[in-house]
Simulated assay, not measured.
Amino acid sequence: MISGNRPKLIATDLDGTIVPHMGPISDRTVAAFRKAHELGIEIFFVTGRPPRWMVDVREAFGFGNAICANGALLYDLMNNKVLEQWLMPTEVQLEIVQRLRISLPGIHFALEYGEEFHREKQYTTRWDIGRDNVGVDLIEEKITEPAFKMLGRCVKNEFTSDQMLEIALRELDGVANITHSNSSESLIEISALGVSKGQTLAKMAERAGLTAADCVSFGD
């Protein structure tokens, strides 16, 4: 139940929620969020996207902050600046790769840190086409600094995303946080242990002195 007549914080997922998969953000959606912003309600866009994919959101709305990379980054949307980040150390990345190569035969990896995206040659790129045209034989070559996200893909669809998630949750228990956003992609996304969209959003609400009763969130 929301205290008072209106929330103090609104958080929304992007893709598949307020951003259609096959089209632009609607004028109606922008108008609704603009009205909330004008009423003094804090707006958070919460997403698995990295900051480099937030240009359309910044241009459409012109206000708000963002929680990016499945909770790993607190991002100042309007000033294009990462304010805080919760990263996976290199030794954790190496452990993740070692464990999943054994438990998920056929998996190939990509990782993201700073403005960089790196992938193994056999990792099929869906969205960052052209960002890393060469790739490396083994992702260990690029594990040189803390990363905000790792991605694992079974390029021949040896496992579904649901199967990959089930196995990874077991193999990486106590090591990292794992999720997926599309059950048909044979893709999992990996963050630092304890990092998720919900955890980071809860942290932002707590800092603002808000409880769950003051907040509205929708999407995944």
Results as ranks from 00 to 15, higher is better:
residue 1 M to F: 01
residue 3 S to R: 14
residue 3 S to F: 07
residue 7 P to D: 00
residue 8 K to N: 06
residue 8 K to P: 01
residue 10 I to G: 04
residue 15 D to C: 07
residue 15 D to G: 08
residue 15 D to K: 05
residue 16 G to T: 12
residue 19 V to C: 07
residue 20 P to H: 10
residue 21 H to Y: 15
residue 22 M to V: 09
residue 23 G to I: 05
residue 24 P to A: 15
residue 27 D to Q: 13
residue 29 T to W: 00
residue 31 A to P: 00
residue 32 A to K: 09
residue 34 R to P: 02
residue 38 E to M: 11
residue 40 G to R: 04
residue 40 G to A: 06
residue 41 I to T: 13
residue 41 I to K: 06
residue 41 I to S: 06
residue 43 I to C: 05
residue 43 I to N: 02
residue 50 P to L: 01
residue 50 P to Q: 14
residue 51 P to Q: 11
residue 56 D to W: 02
residue 58 R to H: 02
residue 61 F to Y: 12
residue 63 F to E: 03
residue 63 F to Q: 04
residue 64 G to Y: 02
residue 70 N to F: 02
residue 70 N to Y: 01
residue 71 G to K: 03
residue 76 D to M: 03
residue 76 D to G: 00
residue 77 L to I: 06
residue 78 M to N: 14
residue 78 M to A: 02
residue 80 N to M: 11
residue 80 N to C: 11
residue 81 K to M: 00
residue 85 Q to A: 05
residue 90 T to G: 04
residue 91 E to L: 01
residue 92 V to L: 09
residue 93 Q to H: 07
residue 95 E to H: 00
residue 97 V to Q: 12
residue 98 Q to N: 09
residue 100 L to I: 05
residue 102 I to V: 15
residue 105 P to A: 07
residue 105 P to E: 08
residue 109 F to S: 08
residue 110 A to P: 03
residue 110 A to N: 10
residue 110 A to Y: 08
residue 111 L to M: 14
residue 114 G to Y: 11
residue 116 E to C: 09
residue 117 F to R: 15
residue 122 Q to H: 12
residue 130 G to L: 12
residue 130 G to M: 08
residue 132 D to H: 09
residue 134 V to G: 01
residue 135 G to R: 13
residue 136 V to W: 13
residue 136 V to Y: 13
residue 137 D to Q: 08
residue 140 E to V: 13
residue 145 E to N: 05
residue 146 P to L: 01
residue 146 P to E: 05
residue 147 A to K: 08
residue 151 L to C: 11
residue 159 F to L: 06
residue 160 T to H: 00
residue 161 S to M: 04
residue 162 D to L: 03
residue 163 Q to G: 01
residue 165 L to E: 15
residue 168 A to G: 06
residue 171 E to Q: 14
residue 173 D to W: 06
residue 174 G to M: 11
residue 179 T to F: 00
residue 183 S to R: 10
residue 183 S to K: 13
residue 185 E to M: 14
residue 187 L to Y: 07
residue 189 E to C: 07
residue 189 E to T: 07
residue 196 S to G: 06
residue 198 G to A: 10
residue 199 Q to M: 07
residue 201 L to K: 13
residue 203 K to C: 02
residue 203 K to P: 00
residue 204 M to S: 06
residue 206 E to I: 03
residue 207 R to V: 05
residue 208 A to S: 09
residue 208 A to T: 04
residue 208 A to Q: 14
residue 209 G to A: 09
residue 210 L to H: 10
residue 212 A to K: 15
residue 213 A to M: 08
residue 213 A to K: 13
residue 214 D to M: 02
residue 216 V to A: 11
residue 217 S to E: 01
residue 217 S to K: 04
residue 219 G to P: 11
